[in-house]
């Protein structure tokens, strides 16, 4: 009897411990160097273009689009390349765009950026030397011409899998709390510390496309708006 009671307590305890255990978050995704098992098209599907114009009037708008195994792909010189198309706001030349692959823990979407006209024909592309680290994006910054209607972002089969090594310095801010004798309450203050270390990422066919749109005058798509 005693033995039974003991085992039921043990079971209960085990259950409680299991109940408290939290599932660790999944590890950050790794780079994808090759696209396999996909049927790609020769031209991008413009009907699925993501609007760069935000629903609410704004001067600044940021979009992050995940490119994964389900994303459509294009044939690029005989090699598959995942892609996403964005529709430019009206008065395209009134916008500064920063477009590229977002820095993630282990990967950066390796981007190729092309501006397309209303017929889907390429009117501007950017050589490798024009790409830079802009904010947390590896990409290009430009103002499209008024003939531009779409921006095609596709993954670069030439760079996929290539390592990007960088030594990074970070300033980390944390909030602390202390008892304040003047207010008889708790008050918060911030302290900072530094962190540095070597990072290794790879250019990837999957990841996140980061787009930042800034209106030069007025709002996005509304140059005369105040």
């Amino acid at each position: 009897m005693n033995q039974m009671r003991f085992s039921s307590i043990a079971l209960l305890l085990a259950g409680l411990v299991a109940g408290c255990a939290t599932t660790p978050p999944p590890p950050p995704p790794q780079a994808v160097s090759e696209i396999t098992g996909k049927t790609c098209t020769d031209t991008p599907d413009l009907t699925k273009a993501i609007a760069m114009t935000p629903k609410r009037k704004a001067q600044w708008h940021a979009i992050a689009t995940t490119i994964d195994g389900m994303s459509p792909c294009l044939n690029l010189d005989g090699k598959p390349s995942n892609y996403v198309v964005y529709a430019l706001p009206s008065a395209p030349s009134n916008h500064t765009l920063t477009i590229g692959g977002l820095y993630e823990a282990f990967r950066i979407l390796g981007p190729l950026v092309t501006v397309l006209n209303a017929d889907g024909q390429p009117i501007r592309s950017f050589p490798a030397e024009r790409f830079a680290n802009v904010g947390s994006t590896f990409g290009v910054q430009f103002r499209p011409s008024d003939e531009g209607r779409f921006v095609l972002v596709q993954t670069n089969p030439q760079t996929a899998g290539i390592e990007v090594k960088a030594f990074e310095t970070q300033l980390v801010t944390q909030t602390n709390y202390s008892y304040n004798p003047y207010t008889y309450g708790s008050s918060s203050y911030q302290t900072q510390y530094g962190r540095e270390g070597a990072t290794v990422r790879k250019f990837s066919h999957e990841g996140v496309v980061s787009v930042t749109i800034q209106a030069v005058a007025g709002k996005i798509g509304l140059p005369n708006e105040k």
Partner: peptide, 17 residues
């Protein structure tokens, strides 16, 4: 060069370690 915070829309260059 060697930014501690990567500001949006500006260019950053990682330090030579």
């Amino acid at each position: 060069y060697n930014p501690v915070v990567k500001s949006d829309v500006t260019v950053s260059i990682p330090v030579d370690e």
